[in-house]
């Protein structure tokens, strides 16, 4: 997730302080991974340096002065470009699960146990997400669905691999 692009896009709806920006980001997109304060201010400093945001007000506070950031025209153009560009689909070709299965076969260990252990863990997480969906709002449901579809893809791969273990064993051990 690009934190800097997301901050920029959030600033399009109005100027904001770093503190408020962080909380809006966490509430909308942070889910289980809120952005750290250090990253918030480092990101805003980079955006400022690139001319994508500007400081439109400085308010004195008890600690350091509070800066209010606003998006520039260049920033709006950057957001437009970002939203219009497709994300690169991740091919997942370097796969830890495949590596474990292949190594289990190479070392003569039961590879089916590797697959079954992983399946049980995937389903455990899927159960958690499913029960979270039941109590969550639409945003929560969509975020959980995204995760669930990805985990399901892994599980389909696990099942397919289980069905082809004999062939795979013959290939990796020859």
């Amino acid at each position: 997730m690009s934190v800097s692009k997301t901050f920029l896009a959030l600033l399009e709806s109005g100027a904001s302080h770093g503190y408020d920006l962080k909380h809006e980001y966490d509430a909308r997109f942070g889910t289980d991974r809120p952005v750290a304060y250090g990253q918030v201010y480092a990101t805003l400093a980079r955006l400022l340096k690139s001319g994508l945001v500007t400081v439109d007000a400085v308010e004195p506070g008890e600690g350091p002065d509070r800066k209010r950031y606003a998006i520039t025209e260049a920033g709006v153009a950057d957001v437009e470009r970002w939203l219009a560009s497709p994300e690169a689909p991740e091919p997942y070709l370097q796969n830890v699960l495949y590596t474990k299965v292949a190594l289990a076969l190479l070392s003569g260990r039961p590879a089916i146990d590797v697959l079954d252990t992983q399946r049980a863990e995937h389903l455990r997480v899927m159960r958690e997400l499913t029960s979270r969906k039941a109590t969550g709002d639409l945003v929560d449901q969509l975020i959980c669905d995204h995760a669930l579809f990805h985990l399901e893809a892994d599980l389909r791969w696990l099942e397919l691999t289980a069905a082809r273990l004999d062939q795979l064993a013959a290939q990796v051990t020859r």
């Binding site: 079954d116 995937h122 389903l123 899927m126 159960r127 499913t130 669930l148 579809f149 399901e152 289980a162």
Partner: peptide, 16 residues
């Protein structure tokens, strides 16, 4: 055979 459906269950048993 759908994992997302199985995730509604308390636990799973696999038949092969």
């Amino acid at each position: 055979h759908e994992p997302r459906v199985a995730a509604y269950a308390d636990r799973e048993v696999v038949v092969r």
